[in-house]
């Protein structure tokens, strides 16, 4: 499913990387340990994490993840936003928890 459609359905706010809204989201990965994400997340995944420092963009870019979603209204670092725009990695924020996001993705048939 296109990220643009997911954003509309889940009411996700685009914080950065708006150029990547046509990305196809093919899976979901939830984890905050960067080495773990590095070795397990797959290309095209929506990555849900509470980490908001700029190095998450490096991880997402290296793995060609579909987007980063920051749950529970957590504030995103300014240099993360700058880097996300540079690397065209969409960063979305929302008030939902990681669990609520996961169930919503499941209902949309993503990540099965």
């Amino acid at each position: 499913m296109k990220l643009r459609d997911i954003c509309e359905k889940l009411n996700l706010k685009v914080a950065a990387g708006g150029n990547g809204l046509e990305n196809d989201i093919t899976g979901v990965y939830i984890c905050d340990l960067l080495s773990w994400v590095m070795s397990h997340a797959q290309k095209g995944d929506a990555w849900i994490t509470v980490m908001t420092h700029s190095n998450v963009i490096a991880v997402a870019s290296l793995l060609e993840l579909g987007c980063i979603i920051v749950p529970e209204g957590i504030e995103i670092d300014e240099d993360t936003i700058v880097k996300a725009d540079e690397e065209n990695i969409p960063v979305l924020s929302c008030s939902l928890s990681a669990y609520q996001l996961a169930t919503a993705f499941n209902e949309m048939g993503i990540g099965k």
């Binding site: 340990l33 960067l34 080495s35 590095m38 070795s39 980490m51 190095n55």
Partner: peptide
């Protein structure tokens, strides 16, 4: 606190 230091770096390198 930044999500590093899981003790997986060197093992990941070896695996890959």
């Amino acid at each position: 606190e930044m999500g590093f230091g899981a003790g997986m770096g060197l093992p990941n390198m070896k695996k890959c």
